[in-house]
Design a protein around this nucleic acid. Sequence first.
DNA 1: TATTGTGAAGCTATTCACAGCC
DNA 2: GGCTGTGAATAGCTTCACAATA
Lengths: 231, 231
Amino acid sequence: MTSRTPRPRERGIPEATVARLPVYLRALQALQERGTPTVSSEALAEAAGVNSAKLRKDLSHLGSYGTRGVGYEVEHLVHQISRELGLTQDWAVAIVGIGNLGRALANYGGFGTRGFRIEALLDADPAMVGQRVASLEVGHIDSLEEVVGSRGVSIGVITTPAEAAQAVATRFVEAGVGSILNFAPVVLNVPDGVDVRKVDLSIELQILAFHAQRRAAGDGQVAAAPGLELT
Amino acid sequence: MTSRTPRPRERGIPEATVARLPVYLRALQALQERGTPTVSSEALAEAAGVNSAKLRKDLSHLGSYGTRGVGYEVEHLVHQISRELGLTQDWAVAIVGIGNLGRALANYGGFGTRGFRIEALLDADPAMVGQRVASLEVGHIDSLEEVVGSRGVSIGVITTPAEAAQAVATRFVEAGVGSILNFAPVVLNVPDGVDVRKVDLSIELQILAFHAQRRAAGDGQVAAAPGLELT
DNA sequence: TATTGTGAAGCTATTCACAGCC
DNA sequence: GGCTGTGAATAGCTTCACAATA
């Protein structure tokens, strides 16, 4: 994960907490589906893969929604976290770059059980334009500004090749989009106040490789075969 | 991003630094292609989107590879960072779950300019098995253990539906895979010493929504149209 | 002179441990 | 008695600012 906080923070929830709220929410929704009425910090923490003190401190930033001796009311907490995350409104999303990845995202139905609507798919390739993907017609990138304005897009997703990403980001920003999720392997330059998050496959793999190498070096023997030497 | 450090850290590089090294590496490789021989911390930091003090401290963890008054030799630094990240060897990767996303990853050629080889694509769907994707034949998930063993897979990528992910992770671990990159929206349970990183689209969107809501609330007017109210 | 490498300071996040409350 | 909420302690990360040095 990587983030750029849009402003210093106004009387706010710590960034690290914000990043975990979605995880808690997902665990709570699972409990809700099973009809569980209340949950202890211990049990919820376990489901979310964090320790219970951290969970309690995180939740304390939202307010006092637990009951001592009992735990948290699942339904209520789902609502509070959803509200805090801004999921009680619907955010319009545009995806630019309809290659394999763009298509994968467009088809990915369950965006955290609602909160987001994919409103537009755009691509620069004329051959792509007009095709139907996930029951949307792919538009031409030239219509970006128009689409953002007319459909109230506030979150832009970039799945273009690296070379195109900065230009798309700039156009998004000038069109008024304040939140960008970038899958292209480049550092985007945006003005202050615009929030960019990036998802970068090769970075993740490289971090894994670092730890794997550590492990191999620390062990006496080479545990999980590291593969061919390449000089 | 999210990580689980495999062990406390053995005389090591801070986790936050490790997560940035791939970014520096990418910027350096771009400079290398343009034939730039040296770069200052200021310039490299700019390209990587961090401040220069942080960059210098990060690099200082690898050793003293700069020259005062001059900067860093690009070639040399590329080599040092690659080595530190374990990219001077080749890591065998298996992808399980060949849906839209699995296919997208399989076709994504430039894995950070080498270091990783996709060795196997596996799926549970018999209709999928035998198809060719990115010049590899999709195998059946039942062959996971055999494939991991015979091809020396040490990094497993999970792009299955949420329901299947934990079972796949467990099989990876039992087969000796110590590094897992998880795209499925679940918290994976793995033994200590196994390194899991997750990439989760809806979490990223939810974090963006949180900040977008903040921004909208802070402004007098609603800047970038937030979309429809939903109760 | 220009730029690195790094102690020291400041900030953020995590964990502990227990008082407070149901 | 059981579990939350939270101050205090600790650990980790970032930034400052400047001495060291090619």
